[in-house]
């Protein structure tokens, strides 16, 4: 992946102000955006509806209106919890959840996603944790989440949940030695090769620079 700023400038140079075309080519399921008929059922179905800045309906309208900066810097698509209510209800059968995640990933790739957005940070934490060994190290992931906002906040969180942790330890659902050297996938190198290949394919399909 090239430097984010560079990548954004390249995208701008390629699509100019035709943001819809950019979304159609580069965002996962982006070719569906033009099929939205603005009924608003997605906005009404979303359990997080009141907490978003822009509903999916508005996001689609903004994409068609060419509001590139506003869409990509929005934290709306990061708020999606993947409940799929909108996908089930959309009369036009748009894969709205997938589009939301596609937009989020694309905004992140461009470096335009809101830096401190908690979902974005959590996603990165999870991705690094998971891809390193090919397996999720739950202890490290949990601790990473606890200490995401600093040491004091981390200890506070750990203290609040101490009984649950203890219980898990006694039930052998939590192995403290994972902290030192977690278990790994048998063919770690193979996983890494696979991820690299997937990134290559994505870059080729979406017209990104080679990773």
């Amino acid at each position: 992946m090239g430097a984010p700023g560079e990548f954004n400038l390249a995208a701008l140079a390629r699509y100019g102000n035709d943001f819809l075309a950019e979304v159609e080519e580069r965002v996962e399921e982006g070719e569906w955006v033009k099929m939205c008929m603005q009924c608003g059922v997605c906005a009404g179905s979303c359990p997080f509806g009141p907490d978003w800045e822009h509903s999916p309906q508005k996001i689609f309208m903004m994409i068609r209106a060419g509001k590139r900066d506003e869409v990509l810097a929005s934290d709306s698509m990061w708020m999606c919890t993947s409940c799929y209510n909108c996908v089930v209800r959309c009369p036009r059968k748009l894969p709205i959840t997938q589009i939301m995640h596609g937009l989020a990933a694309y905004a992140h790739r461009l470096g335009l996603a809101p830096k401190m957005q908690p979902t974005r940070r959590w996603s990165l934490l999870f991705w690094d944790n998971c891809t390193k060994t090919g397996r999720v190290n739950e202890l490290k992931l949990t601790l990473g989440l606890y200490f995401m906002d600093g040491i004091v906040a981390g200890f506070k969180q750990a203290w609040t949940l101490r009984n649950i942790g203890l219980g898990m330890l006694l039930a052998k659902r939590l192995n403290p030695f994972e902290l030192i050297r977690g278990h790994e996938c048998k063919d770690k190198a193979g996983i890494h090769r696979m991820l690299k290949k997937a990134a290559e394919i994505e870059a080729r399909k979406r017209g990104f620079a080679k990773p």
Partner: peptide, 24 residues
């Protein structure tokens, strides 16, 4: 309000596929 009686919904969808932009 886009009102397309009969089988107009299919026609509307076809236009969206062809890239006609619909702005409310």
């Amino acid at each position: 309000d886009l009102r397309v009686p009969g089988n107009g919904e299919d026609f509307y969808r076809s236009a969206q596929k062809k890239g006609v932009t619909f702005t409310k």
